[in-house]
Protein backbone atom coordinates (compact mmCIF):
# COMPACT_ATOMS: atom_id res chain seq x y z
CA UNK A 1 0.00 0.00 0.00
CA UNK A 2 1.48 3.30 -0.95
CA UNK A 3 1.01 6.34 1.20
CA UNK A 4 -0.53 9.60 0.07
CA UNK A 5 2.85 11.37 -0.16
CA UNK A 6 4.24 8.59 -2.34
CA UNK A 7 1.15 8.74 -4.52
CA UNK A 8 1.61 12.50 -5.00
CA UNK A 9 5.24 11.94 -5.92
CA UNK A 10 4.37 9.30 -8.50
CA UNK A 11 1.75 11.57 -10.06
CA UNK A 12 4.16 14.53 -10.17
CA UNK A 13 6.95 12.47 -11.73
CA UNK A 14 4.57 11.00 -14.30
CA UNK A 15 3.41 14.54 -15.07
CA UNK A 16 7.02 15.65 -15.64
CA UNK A 17 7.68 12.89 -18.16
CA UNK A 18 4.29 13.43 -19.82
CA UNK A 19 4.85 17.16 -20.27
CA UNK A 20 8.36 16.48 -21.60
CA UNK A 21 6.81 14.16 -24.16
CA UNK A 22 4.35 16.93 -25.06
CA UNK A 23 7.34 19.18 -25.72
CA UNK A 24 8.54 16.62 -28.26
CA UNK A 25 5.15 16.09 -29.90
CA UNK A 26 3.72 19.61 -30.19
CA UNK A 27 4.24 21.07 -33.65
CA UNK A 28 2.95 24.44 -32.42
CA UNK A 29 5.93 25.99 -30.66
CA UNK A 30 3.84 28.15 -28.31
CA UNK A 31 2.14 24.99 -27.02
CA UNK A 32 5.52 23.32 -26.68
CA UNK A 33 6.80 26.30 -24.68
CA UNK A 34 3.80 26.10 -22.38
CA UNK A 35 4.38 22.36 -21.96
CA UNK A 36 7.99 23.16 -21.04
CA UNK A 37 6.73 25.65 -18.47
CA UNK A 38 4.39 23.03 -17.03
CA UNK A 39 7.30 20.61 -16.86
CA UNK A 40 9.32 23.18 -14.90
CA UNK A 41 6.42 23.87 -12.55
CA UNK A 42 5.95 20.17 -11.79
CA UNK A 43 9.70 19.89 -11.39
CA UNK A 44 9.65 22.62 -8.76
CA UNK A 45 6.88 20.70 -6.97
CA UNK A 46 9.10 17.61 -7.08
CA UNK A 47 11.98 19.63 -5.62
CA UNK A 48 9.67 20.65 -2.78
CA UNK A 49 8.78 17.00 -2.19
CA UNK A 50 12.48 16.17 -2.11
CA UNK A 51 12.94 18.72 0.70
CA UNK A 52 14.67 21.36 -1.37
CA UNK A 53 12.58 24.53 -0.88
CA UNK A 54 15.33 26.88 -2.11
CA UNK A 55 15.65 25.07 -5.39
CA UNK A 56 11.87 24.87 -5.69
CA UNK A 57 11.51 28.66 -5.44
CA UNK A 58 14.32 29.21 -7.94
CA UNK A 59 12.95 26.67 -10.41
CA UNK A 60 9.44 28.14 -10.14
CA UNK A 61 10.71 31.67 -10.66
CA UNK A 62 13.18 30.90 -13.40
CA UNK A 63 11.98 27.75 -15.09
CA UNK A 64 8.25 28.29 -15.05
CA UNK A 65 8.03 32.09 -15.38
CA UNK A 66 11.12 33.57 -17.00
CA UNK A 67 12.14 30.76 -19.33
CA UNK A 68 8.60 30.46 -20.67
CA UNK A 69 8.47 34.22 -21.17
CA UNK A 70 11.73 34.35 -23.13
CA UNK A 71 10.72 31.31 -25.18
CA UNK A 72 7.48 33.04 -26.12
CA UNK A 73 9.34 36.25 -26.99
CA UNK A 74 11.73 34.26 -29.18
CA UNK A 75 8.89 32.39 -30.90
CA UNK A 76 7.11 35.70 -31.55
CA UNK A 77 10.34 36.95 -33.10
CA UNK A 78 10.74 33.94 -35.37
CA UNK A 79 7.99 31.59 -36.50
CA UNK A 80 5.20 29.86 -34.67
CA UNK A 81 5.05 26.48 -36.40
CA UNK A 82 7.86 24.01 -36.11
CA UNK A 83 7.86 22.88 -39.73
CA UNK A 84 7.92 25.31 -42.60
Amino acid sequence: MISLADGVQIVVLAGIVLSALFVVRMRDLISAAVALGACSLLLSLEFYILQAPDVAIAEAGVGAALTTAIFIFAIKGTQRREDY
Partner: peptide, 21 residues
Amino acid sequence: NMVKIVMGVALMESGANLFLV
Protein backbone atom coordinates in the same frame (compact mmCIF):
# COMPACT_ATOMS: atom_id res chain seq x y z
CA ASN B 1 13.85 23.65 -35.61
CA MET B 2 16.35 25.67 -33.58
CA VAL B 3 13.78 26.85 -31.00
CA LYS B 4 12.81 23.23 -30.45
CA ILE B 5 16.46 22.31 -30.02
CA VAL B 6 16.80 24.94 -27.32
CA MET B 7 13.77 23.38 -25.62
CA GLY B 8 15.60 20.07 -25.73
CA VAL B 9 18.62 21.66 -24.07
CA ALA B 10 16.36 23.12 -21.38
CA LEU B 11 14.89 19.66 -20.74
CA MET B 12 18.39 18.17 -20.42
CA GLU B 13 19.32 20.83 -17.90
CA SER B 14 16.15 20.08 -15.92
CA GLY B 15 17.13 16.42 -15.91
CA ALA B 16 20.56 17.20 -14.52
CA ASN B 17 19.02 19.42 -11.83
CA LEU B 18 16.60 16.70 -10.78
CA PHE B 19 19.50 14.22 -10.64
CA LEU B 20 21.46 16.45 -8.30
CA VAL B 21 18.55 17.18 -5.97
